[in-house]
C-alpha cells in the first residue's frame, strides 16, 4: 500500500511519540476498509463508465460500441420516463417536502410534546418501503380502505390508482415517508442558531415575522442546503416502494412509473423476461449520476451564496 508507507515515512520525520505510534498503525488500520471499498465500490463505479460505451450482457466480455448506448437513451421512452420521474421526485416532491418540513419544524418548536411528535413522525423512515407500499396499496385500492371510508359517508368509490394518478399517489407517499426525517434535520440546524440573536432582535423591537425573516430563515440556509443535497442523493435510490406498489403479478411496474433505479433493474435482470442489456443500463446509471452531481454542485453554489449575503 503506497498510502500506508507514505503515512509511516511522514510519521518518522516528525511528531510526538503518540503521533508516531498513531502513524505506525495508519496503514494497517486503514487498509482492510480501503481495499474492500476500492475494489467493490470505486472500481465498479469506474467500470460502469467504461461499460456504458459497450455492448455487454454481464457475463461475456463487453464489446466497444462507442456512444450508441447514449444515442439509444435519447430515443428510449422507458429511459425518458424513468429520468423525468426521477426529476419529478427530486423537484416536485422535493419542494413540497421541504416547505412542509420547514413549516412543521417551525410549528413544532413552539408546541408542547415536540420531542414526542418529532420521534413519532420519523417512524415511516425506518421501516421497509415494501411494507409501507403494501399498506399504501391497501389504503388506495378500489376495494381499499379509503373508498370504504368514503362509502360510509355515502360517497362513491374513487379510482385513486388510475394510471394518470398512480404516480402522484407515489409522490405523496414519498413525502409522507420522508417528512419526519427532514423535520429532524432542519430542527437540528435551527437549534444551533444562538438564542442571543433572538434576544437582541427582540430588544430592538422586532416582531416575530421580522425575526423569522431576518434570523431564522437566513441562518438556516446552511442546513437547508445540506438537507437538499441529502434529498438529491436520496431520490435516485427510491426503488422498492414503487416496485411493490405498482408492480403486479411478477411484472415490473409500467414504464410510466419507472425511476432511475428501476430502469437499471428493468433493463437487466428484472421482470418476467429479463433483457440483460447491461451496457445500456450502465449508460442510464451514468446519466443519473452526472445529473446528481450537477444538481448537488448547483445546490451548493446557491445555498452558500445566500448564506454569505447574510
Amino acid at each position: 500500500m503506497t498510502s500506508a508507507t507514505l503515512g509511516v515515512r511522514r510519521g518518522r520525520a516528525k511528531g510526538s511519540p503518540l503521533a508516531r505510534r498513531r502513524r505506525r498503525v495508519f496503514g494497517p488500520f486503514l487498509a482492510p476498509a480501503l481495499i474492500l471499498y476500492t475494489i467493490l465500490f470505486m472500481l465498479p463505479t469506474a467500470y460502469s463508465f467504461y461499460a456504458s460505451f459497450t455492448s455487454w450482457d454481464g457475463f461475456s466480455n463487453p464489446r466497444w460500441k462507442g456512444t450508441l448506448n447514449y444515442d439509444h437513451l435519447t430515443h428510449d421512452p422507458a429511459f425518458k420516463d424513468a429520468f423525468f420521474n426521477t426529476l419529478k421526485l427530486l423537484f416536485g416532491c422535493g419542494i413540497f417536502l421541504f416547505v412542509l418540513s420547514f413549516a412543521f419544524m417551525l410549528l413544532l418548536r413552539e408546541m408542547k410534546g415536540r420531542r414526542f411528535i418529532q420521534g413519532f413522525i420519523f417512524l415511516p423512515h425506518i421501516v421497509s418501503g415494501v411494507a409501507l407500499a403494501a399498506f399504501w396499496d391497501f389504503l388506495l385500492n378500489h376495494d381499499g380502505m379509503l373508498n370504504k371510508g368514503l362509502h360510509s359517508f355515502g360517497l362513491g368509490p374513487v379510482d385513486w390508482l388510475k394510471p394518470q394518478w398512480q404516480f402522484n399517489a407515489i409522490l405523496i407517499a414519498i413525502v409522507w415517508i420522508n417528512t419526519g426525517y427532514y423535520v429532524t434535520i432542519l430542527m437540528a440546524g435551527v437549534d444551533r442558531i444562538p438564542p442571543y440573536y433572538y434576544e437582541e432582535a427582540k430588544l430592538a423591537g422586532t416582531n416575530s415575522w421580522q425575526r423569522f425573516r431576518h434570523i431564522t430563515l437566513p441562518m438556516s440556509w446552511d442546513v437547508v442546503g445540506t438537507a437538499a443535497v441529502l434529498w438529491t442523493i436520496g431520490t435516485v435510490k427510491i426503488f422498492e416502494f414503487i416496485l411493490a406498489f405498482s408492480g403486479s403479478q411478477g411484472n415490473l411496474p409500467t414504464t410510466n412509473q419507472w425511476t432511475s433505479a428501476m430502469y437499471v433493474y428493468g433493463e437487466t435482470i428484472g421482470g418476467t423476461s429479463p433483457i440483460y442489456d447491461f451496457g445500456r443500463a450502465c449508460a442510464g446509471a451514468v446519466v443519473t449520476l452526472v445529473a446528481v452531481v450537477v444538481v448537488v454542485v448547483v445546490l451548493r453554489r446557491v445555498t452558500s451564496r445566500d448564506r454569505l449575503e447574510l
Partner: peptide, 22 residues
C-alpha cells in the same frame, strides 16, 4: 475518498458487481 461514496447511487455500482459476483 470515503465521503465520495455517500453520493454514488447504488445503480451505478450494481452491474459491475453483478458480473464480479457471478
Amino acid at each position: 475518498y470515503f465521503v465520495l461514496g455517500l453520493g454514488i447511487p447504488m445503480q451505478i455500482i450494481v452491474l459491475p458487481l453483478y458480473s464480479i459476483m457471478a
